[in-house]
Design a protein around this nucleic acid. Sequence first.
DNA 1: TAAAAATACTCCATAGGTATTTTAT
DNA 2: ATAAAATACCTATGGAGTATTTTTA
Lengths: 108, 108
Amino acid sequence: MAIDLRQLRYVIAAAEHGSFRQAAASLGVEVSAISRGIRDLEDGIGASLFSRHSGGVRLTPAGELFLTRARNVVTELETAERDVGVIGRGERGRVRIGIYSSLTSGFL
Amino acid sequence: MAIDLRQLRYVIAAAEHGSFRQAAASLGVEVSAISRGIRDLEDGIGASLFSRHSGGVRLTPAGELFLTRARNVVTELETAERDVGVIGRGERGRVRIGIYSSLTSGFL
DNA sequence: TAAAAATACTCCATAGGTATTTTAT
DNA sequence: ATAAAATACCTATGGAGTATTTTTA
């Protein structure tokens, strides 16, 4: 099995909007992508995350638990992205060594 | 930009093994996959995560920071997977409603 | 010069779109 | 009957392998 960040974003959007349709619109994809992405995820982990109704979807208990975790993952990832981008910017290429030392003393 | 779990796993493996070659072997992929995956990630976040040597690779300061975050992400994700699998198993299909209620009282 | 990593090229798996069917109220 | 989600089918993007070149100590 392989959970995908894309799938986490689908779950988060679907939970926030209460429907696959609105989630799809908010992410700029089609409903079918959300539907399949979440179904594959559910199959992979062996649990339903949403109950489906004619008016949209609602999180199951398992889904609520998963949503919390999913948000943590995405948040952590965005933090990693930002932190490292700030610290590491400019340290590529020929001047690596010199810049490393300045980074080490300056930031860390 | 879109960081990928695959890339996080590459970074973790490369950091643990100190070489793309060994990381590739441990993950059952080719070195070129690791090399490109990590390069793309570095380009995306705008920072070098590894310094390259003839004997392998070593984490940069930015890389060490990122590694910590990457491990958090992967750990959190595996926890989510396991938790939800346990809680949600069996609640699919026709008998959803009945089982939900038992889950709600039993587990949550 | 010897080891590892990066690149060029190609192939294939799969994520996503379109169209249609199924489900739930 | 109507709104939403699921499925079937097809296409295109990009991840990964093979072969080769470049880089580092």
